[in-house]
Computed example of a mutant assay.
Amino acid sequence: MKYTLTLFIFIFSIRCGFTQETTYVIDYDLKKAFKQLPTSSTFPSSLFIQTGNSTLYQVKYGVTPEEKVEDPNNLPQGNVIVVEGSDAFYFRNEGDTTLIYDDHIIFKHFTVKDEPKFNWTLTKDSKKVLGYNCQKATANFRGRTYEAYFTTDLGIQGAPWKFHGLPGVILHVYSIDGVFEITATGIKTFNDIEPLENPLDTTKMITWNQYKKKYERKYYELMNMVVGSGTGDYDSMPKMQLELLVEDRN
């Protein structure tokens, strides 16, 4: 979502009226390596998990891993989440299957209300990530197969991006085709934090199916324009990005 101004979600310490809860901040590197692009891209991101409340996943597309040394979301004494103009957000209330996030078609942005479902298969494979014991799980989701390593050592549940449904926190997840990977780089905790708020405009939300239909309509509209002009293949709007967006027509 594009913002004309830098917004701030102020998170104050609450002394009265709220039960003291712990906020977990898990930092990740998010890597995308689409085959139609010459190089891969890696972006810093953070997952905010509040026990008894909600989760917020923030991707800082305007910051490279080299630039994240001065991370504005270390949440020092000010306890403030910085919302930049090129950030992407995924917000979910605890216990709710609905995920709210911003997405776009060409240059038009939409607030999407999605209910992604993952049918995870737990395996006996395991490894350590950041010193935490992690178990491997696999799932097929909207055109890709994912392998995820999650930990129950933290005693909480949560996951970056749209991932959901495992009995712990995902610290490493990737698609087996090498297109998508998210790796935890650090974990911090904070106490006495006000409940997270959704930074997205929810007044005009559309569902995932509505978004997909809009994307598919624009895809074939552009394809027909290209075919009619005889200028060749149109590949800047693929059928599949991180998820399958255009079904093959019979």
Rank of each mutant, 00 (worst) to 15 (best):
S54A: 15
S175A: 14
G143T: 02
I9E: 03
V59W: 03
M223C: 08
V25L: 13
N209Q: 14
E70H: 07
F18R: 07
S54R: 04
H164K: 15
L75M: 15
C16H: 14
N93C: 11
E66L: 10
L75Q: 08
M240Y: 02
L75H: 11
N224E: 15
M237T: 06
K60F: 04
N79S: 11
L47S: 05
P76Y: 07
T121V: 14
D177H: 07
F18N: 12
L5G: 01
V179P: 00
L56I: 06
F48Y: 14
L30A: 08
Q77M: 15
T22M: 11
P167C: 08
V169K: 00
K213H: 13
M225Y: 04
G158L: 03
D71W: 07
T121G: 02
T19C: 13
Q210L: 12
K127I: 00
F141Y: 15
T6W: 00
G62Y: 09
V63T: 10
G168F: 00
W161M: 12
Y57D: 04
N250K: 10
G85H: 06
Y215Q: 04
K128C: 06
K35S: 10
S229M: 06
R249T: 09
N93P: 01
F107Q: 13
I106R: 11
D27Y: 11
Y234M: 10
K188D: 14
L37C: 10
Q210S: 07
D29G: 00
A33M: 04
E247Q: 14
G186M: 01
R217W: 07
Y61K: 07
E70A: 15
A139D: 02
K213L: 11
D233Y: 09
K108H: 12
K162P: 10
Y24R: 06
K213Q: 14
F141N: 05
F12P: 02
Y215S: 03
N209R: 12
C16W: 03
N250Y: 12
G85C: 05
L222P: 02
I81N: 00
T207Q: 05
